[in-house]
Design a protein around this nucleic acid. Sequence first.
DNA 1: GAATTAAATGAACGCTTGTTTTATTAATTG
DNA 2: CAATTAATAAAACAAGCGTTCATTTAATTC
Lengths: 202, 202
Amino acid sequence: MARTTGSDGERTEAAIREAAVDLFARRGYEAVTTRQIAAAVGVQAAALYRYFPTKEDLLFELMRSHMAALIGSWDVVRPADADPVERLSAFVDNHIRFHVERRHSTHVSNMELRSLSKERLSQILRLRTAYEKELRTILRDGAESGRLAVDDVGLTAMAIIQMITGVIVWFRPDERLSVEEVARTYLAMTLRLTAADSSREN
Amino acid sequence: MARTTGSDGERTEAAIREAAVDLFARRGYEAVTTRQIAAAVGVQAAALYRYFPTKEDLLFELMRSHMAALIGSWDVVRPADADPVERLSAFVDNHIRFHVERRHSTHVSNMELRSLSKERLSQILRLRTAYEKELRTILRDGAESGRLAVDDVGLTAMAIIQMITGVIVWFRPDERLSVEEVARTYLAMTLRLTAADSSREN
DNA sequence: GAATTAAATGAACGCTTGTTTTATTAATTG
DNA sequence: CAATTAATAAAACAAGCGTTCATTTAATTC
C-alpha cells in the first residue's frame, strides 16, 4: 500500500497535532515514540515526516501555537482602560477558562520545556514572559493607585499564576463543579489575596 | 579493572541518589540514561544495579523518601492544639522552607509520577493525599470556627498548595530575596486569601 | 487519458536504551 | 595468610529509538 483512499494532508496534520498533544500530556514527550503518535493517527511513522521535520519540531509547534492562542485570547477580552480590579478580574477569568479548556495543551507547554533546544526554549519563554507581564502591569497599577495590596509585584504575579494555572491539575469538567463556579471561586480568592478594594473612586 | 580502591557501598549509593535526583530534575526521568547517572557518580552503568534493581526502582525510592521526609518535617513542627490560624501559618512556613531546600527532589516527585507503575503511583499518591489532608483539616476547622473564610475546602486547599509549591519554579536562593522573606510574603498572601481573622477569642 | 503532484507505505539504517552476565580486584574475616 | 564477601569493570544482549529512502498508489491537472 501507499497513498490511501480519501487521504487528505490537512486532516492528517490536524490529527497528528491532536494525537501528539494528547500523548505528550499523558505520558510525557520523551516517553512517547513517533510510532505511538502514528498509530494513534492511523498511519505509519514515516508519514509524520511529511508534516514535521523532527519530533522536536512537532513539540515546538504545539507549544508555539498554544502560547499564541493564550495571548490571543487575552487580547480579545482585555479591557481597554478599566481600573486595575476590573482588569485583574478579566485576566483571572480568561486564564481559568482558557486553561480548563486546554488542559492537555497547557500541560505540554508547561512541562516539556526542557526538551526544547536552547533557541526554541527562549522563544517560548519570551511568549510566556510577555503574557505574564500583563499581570504584573495590572498589579503594579493596582498597587500604585492603592486599589490592590501588593507587597512584591513579581512574587505576587508568580503566586497568582501558579494558583490559577494549578486548576488543570485537579479540575475535571463533568464533576461536582462547573467551569463557572471554579472561575468564580478562584477570582474571589485572587481578589482577597490582593486585598482588592472594590469601592471605586476614580 | 574491577573493584576500585577506596570504594564503599554506602557512599556509592548516596552518590547515585544525589546524581539521579539532580539529573531527573534537570532533564526529566525519561530523558536521563543509566549511563549518564553512572558517569555523574563515576562508575559504570552496571554498578547501579547493585543498589537498585531497575531504573524505575530508583525513581520510586527517590519519590518515596521525599514524601516521607515531607510528612516527617511537618510532624516535627506541627502545633498540637493551636488555633487554625496558627496551624495554617506553621503549615505554610514549613512547606515553603522544605520545598525551597529540596527543589530538585520536589520537582522529581511532582513531575515524574507518570513514569511509575500503577501500583507505585497510588502508593506515592497515598502519601501525598495524607499530607494534603493536613491542610484540609486546618481549613475546615478554621471555617467552622469562623476564623477563616473558606468557600470550598478542597478547592482552597489545592489553590494554596499550588501557590506555595510554585515557589520552586522561580525562586533561587542567593538572589534578591532570602528564604525568610519569601516565606513571610507567601504566608501573608495565604492569610489574606483565607481572610484570616487574627484576633484571638478562644 | 497521460503527466504530474500529493500522500502514504514498508523496509531499512545506525545508534542508544535498560539490563544481564562474567570476570576481576579490594576489603574483610577467621 | 587463606578464604570469603563486597564492589566494580567490561562486554554483550535484545529491543526499541528517531529518521531516511525508494517506491507505490490516489488525486489532480492539462
